[in-house]
Write a protein that binds this DNA or RNA. Structure first.
Lengths: 185, 185
DNA sequence: GCCTATGTTCACAGATCAGTATACCTTGGA
DNA sequence: TCCAAGGTATACTGATCTGTGAACATAGGC
């Protein structure tokens, strides 16, 4: 991606996430990134493709954070709930809920390129929970993973509300993992 | 509300929920409800106030469903997780996630009338969980209520995804309630 | 020295947006 | 009988939307 392209995506991330995708026009993004609208269209072709790029970029950054948080765990039981620690870090600078849920809300058309990206992001996390649960030798890892996933999404979705739910949610997640550890370990 | 007003709100509900608030124009709502745009503005004054009416109407309908589901429970322990049963019913005809979360995503301005309505809807449910937990004599009802609330919102938020999470979520919710029952009962 | 990639400037098209103006119609009640 | 409320029909404003066209500038690599 060219320097101008990177600046455009950075401005798009900021604006789309904080003001909504439909509400933000390409003119504003071009102005905010110090670039001509022509350059924006030369780089991305359409607003829809810029939206997809924005979500893909954000997905990548988020996965990196989760992965590094998981890798930093010494014991595999801790790793299962590491995404909740990542969420705490993430929430410090992202207080407008989940960008992917929000994008799905604004773009109902399943054929929109952003749709696939958002759905995949969610399924990736669900699958990661399952892998971590298997690695930690938890009983019924599929069910546990679904429960942790729903808890995670719930904590994320309630983020814009004036109440803090993350602590209780993470506590419950850890209790669930402990309860599903095999006794023979 | 006049007959035309009711038709407008009905059309607005359908369109706003399924296509997004910003993406739907007032012309489309007027056309869909078989009403002139002039009538729409005579009734509601602005699009923002129509959006607020749409959310208030939806909130009312949803609370009725939850209340009736709660009231139908014979034992108070069942009542605590009744909102999850209501969610199952609700999800049959509402597969685009939570209208209030979606509205918050599209309308970042906290001074928007819809903002208060959406936030209140969530806080109402959290408080209902707490009241039900107290009535069922659960230990630490505040924490339990927060956990049930997050689970509920998680199940709602993951609804647009091609996976079913509601069964496992409701099971976990019931297990949590059972685990927090006082032994002396 | 030339060529390609990256970008700029600026005007423009066609559609759609929220919201208004004006004049008219219909119906039920005092 | 009149009048007010609810509603229709239609045209309009001014702004904003995504996206395009055409000509020009600049710099690095062969």
């Amino acid at each position: 991606m060219t320097p101008a392209g990177r600046r455009i995506v950075a401005a798009a991330e900021e604006l789309f996430y904080n003001r909504g995708i439909t509400a933000v026009g390409v003119d504003l993004i071009a102005e905010q990134s110090g670039v001509t609208k022509r350059t924006l269209y030369n780089q991305f072709g359409s607003k829809d493709r810029l939206v997809a790029t924005y979500l893909a970029e954000r997905d990548q950054r988020w996965r990196s954070l989760v992965r590094s948080t998981v890798d930093r765990c010494e014991r595999r039981v801790e790793a299962v709930t590491a995404p909740f620690d990542a969420l705490r870090t993430w929430s410090k600078t992202n207080t407008r809920g989940c960008a992917f849920i929000n994008a799905l809300a604004e773009l109902p058309d399943p054929s929109h390129p952003a749709h696939r990206i958002a759905a995949n992001q969610k399924l990736w996390l669900l699958n990661l929970f399952k892998e971590l649960a298997v690695a930690a030798d938890c009983s019924d890892p599929a069910t546990l993973a679904t429960q942790l996933f729903v808890l995670h999404e719930g904590a994320l979705a309630t983020q814009p509300l004036p109440i803090d739910t993350l602590s209780e949610t993470a506590d419950l997640a850890r209790a669930l993992v402990r309860a599903s550890e095999h006794p023979r370990r």
